[in-house]
């Protein structure tokens, strides 16, 4: 896939009474590494959850390379090219390292049967939409039967697809520095490696836009700087756009080409790192929470 452009227009997200995002408008050009910063609770993770379909935004629109994606279910959005990692690591803890990446590759293992039956956004009231799902049922059922038959009979086509997926998973693991750990259970990896595995798994989905939620949280400076190198390499080798939520200012300033600052769910600033660092509104928002000046360590 080629890197995607992200356009977010007037995005709002409301939880009973609490406004987590308000009128966020943003454009990230293809191939950019974009930083998303802001104090704790500013709505950064919520922003990711909206992009990936975990939450259905209460207002606004999201476009990925021109296609409107808000309102689509998460697995469809993933199929269209958005992948993510999680702030509080959420690996499949009892599966092996290799299997974790294979799940990431799920939609790209050509064993017959697709997961995306429709990319239509819901337009009718929920009740109607729930019934409309039934329309796709015969096709979905056929799909499922084909996939089950393939899994049981395991014809050469399926074997080849599985083998190719395993090869690719090994490549991805090597790319993030996890060669040799393929058969370990994910839960037994050291903390830093778990973050790397999350990235490899996300890359398995072949993203055009990669969302990284605090990938260096809890890492020491050396680990963090090797993560910076990895993020750059990923953007170059895998041709993705990257949005990075990050607290360690050295990381943000070092790797991001452009930065958006959120505070209380609103975008309060946007621009290149140097300008952000000097921006009085941003400094104001961070006052009393933590220093924004370079090198400072933020609480994880």
């Amino acid at each position: 896939m080629t890197a995607a452009e992200l356009v977010v227009d007037g995005l709002g997200m409301q939880f009973e009474g609490l406004t987590a995002l308000a009128d966020v408008t943003l454009r990230v050009p293809p191939g950019e590494i974009h930083g998303l910063i802001g104090p704790n609770g500013a709505g950064k993770t919520t922003f990711f959850n909206c992009l990936t379909g975990f939450y259905r935004p209460t207002s606004g629109a999201i476009y990925l390379s021109g296609q409107r994606i808000d309102g689509l279910p998460p697995h469809v959005i993933t199929g269209l090219g958005i992948a993510r990692t999680f702030q509080n690591i959420r690996l499949f803890a009892n599966m092996t390292v290799l299997e974790n990446v294979l799940v990431g590759e799920h939609q790209h293992i050509a064993v017959g049967g697709t997961d995306i039956l429709s990319t239509r956004r819901p337009t009718y009231p929920p009740i109607v939409e729930r019934l409309l799902v039934l329309r796709g049922f015969p096709r979905a059922a056929l799909n499922g039967i084909i996939e089950i038959a393939g899994a049981v009979a395991r014809p050469p086509r399926v074997r080849a697809a599985e083998a190719a997926a395993v090869d690719r998973a090994r490549e991805l693991l090597a790319a993030v520095g996890l060669r040799g750990r393929e058969n370990d259970l994910a839960r037994n990896l050291p903390y830093g490696d778990q973050r790397r595995l999350e990235i490899a798994r996300a890359l398995g989905t072949r993203p055009a836009l990669l969302l990284l939620d605090e990938p260096t949280a809890g890492m020491n400076p050396q680990e963090a700087s090797s993560m910076v190198g990895l993020i750059r390499r990923i953007r170059d080798e895998f041709a993705t756009t990257v949005i990075l939520i990050e607290h360690q200012m050295r990381v943000v300033m070092g790797v991001c080409e452009s930065i958006t600052v959120l505070d209380y769910g609103r975008k309060i600033a946007e621009g290149p790192p140097a300008a952000i660092q000097r921006n009085p509104t941003v400094i104001e928002a961070y006052l009393g929470t933590r220093a924004i000046q370079g090198g400072g360590h933020a609480a994880p």
Binding site: M13, F15, E16, F54, Y55, R56, T58, P74, P126
Partner: peptide
């Protein structure tokens, strides 16, 4: 109940 905004 009121309609929920989230579904995840």
């Amino acid at each position: 109940a009121q309609r929920s905004t989230t579904r995840a």
